[in-house]
């Protein structure tokens, strides 16, 4: 989780990832940042994020992104 927050802060520093729960709905992460984020996560955590998983529900908070990574790792 710490590593993920590090990645997020590197991509978009002006957000408090511990508390923010509307990263997508509040437009804190735009579509270009998502492209970077997806490739960075795939590199770092050795998972593949299918495009169908790229929905606000999976990306609206650091916790949700982490849950997605955990789920993909299990699969």
């Amino acid at each position: 989780m710490e590593k993920l927050i590090e990645i997020l802060e590197d991509l978009q520093p002006e957000v408090d990832y511990e508390t923010n729960e509307e990263l997508i709905d509040g437009r804190y992460l735009d579509s270009l940042t998502i492209l970077s984020l997806v490739s960075e996560i795939e590199d770092e955590f050795d998972v593949e994020i299918p495009t169908v998983e790229i929905i606000p529900d999976n990306f609206n908070s650091a916790k949700k992104i982490w849950a997605l990574i955990e789920r993909l790792k299990e699969e």
Partner: peptide, 15 residues
């Protein structure tokens, strides 16, 4: 948008 921008060749390009 996402299926194209996150297709394998474009993802490689992004990285």
């Amino acid at each position: 948008y996402y299926p194209i921008s996150l297709s394998k060749p474009l993802k490689k390009l992004t990285v």
